[in-house]
Nucleic acid binder design. Structure first.
Lengths: 140, 140
DNA sequence: CAATTATTGAAAATGATTTTCAATAACAAA
DNA sequence: TTTGTTATTGAAAATCATTTTCAATAATTG
């Protein structure tokens, strides 16, 4: 999904396309790592100096609402976001470089069914994250 | 694992047993829901009025360090903790009443191996949380 | 091109967490 | 026991992230 498509999504949902939003979208879209609001702010401001941090917060909020980005939870904190435009997918994070890879979690279904049966819960959502070292970081 | 065992753990690791710590330990240990620092503070203060919020933060920090409690991540926020003294287990949360159930995740291993193979990552940790409705909340 | 109205950035307000610090309480050793 | 050392305490202040307020500006619609 291209940045243009993200902007279209924003527009289709009644939001205006502004320079500030363009540059935030570009920044988050381009990153394979999760970025915190301040990191987005710092990177994006190199391209658009007038950008305000508040606008970054507000834009991230909208992108999350449209499921174009998703929050990444880590031991260090839970404020970072990554691009998430491939529907429901699970995350695999490199603990060294922060690189993020998505993977399908079809195999989780049987586990969910079994847990539902054992516990009597009706399971509505699940949430899986793996942590490790990417091929690059392993060899260096 | 009893509260006494938690206190022993603290003591064995060179921490002193104080009234403040006792009451924080009691409070978290007794709860089947995840509690935020303020919630712990409010509950615990009913038993020990002089307790300070700062001490709650510091005690939770130590309990987490000793793996006696673990942080619970939710859409609403990631500041809450639950008792976690059964080793590595996964969480199942009731979205209505907050009740938490632990379950083993043996079935996750094959998935992890398969993802490792596909991605070239060496996977060190994993993290699984399920959300749904408990039997009680379903029927009411 | 004009009018409407969402969006902007700055500053202030809020909320959570951490740090500082002097008083106190726990505990090991005598 | 009692004592001395030192970790722990709570309050206040400091910090950090996030949200709200507001008047100025810029994006869209007609």
């Amino acid at each position: 999904m291209s940045t243009t498509a993200w902007l279209e999504q924003l527009h289709d949902n009644g939001y205006r396309i502004t320079s500030a939003r363009r540059v935030v979208v570009d920044t988050v879209h381009a990153s394979t790592r999760a970025l915190t609001p301040i990191e987005v702010y710092d990177k994006a401001r190199k391209k658009y100096h007038a950008l305000g941090l508040v606008t970054v917060y507000r834009t991230l909020e909208k992108l999350e609402e449209l499921h174009l980005i998703q929050r990444v939870h880590q031991a260090a904190g839970c404020q970072a976001f990554v691009s998430a435009c491939h529907g429901h997918q699970h995350l695999l994070l490199c603990q060294n470089c922060g690189q993020i890879v998505f993977f399908e979690g079809d195999d989780v279904e049987p586990l969910i069914k079994s847990v539902a049966k054992k516990t009597g819960y009706e399971i509505k959502e699940h949430w899986l994250q793996l942590f490790g070292l990417c091929a690059d970081c392993r060899s260096n």
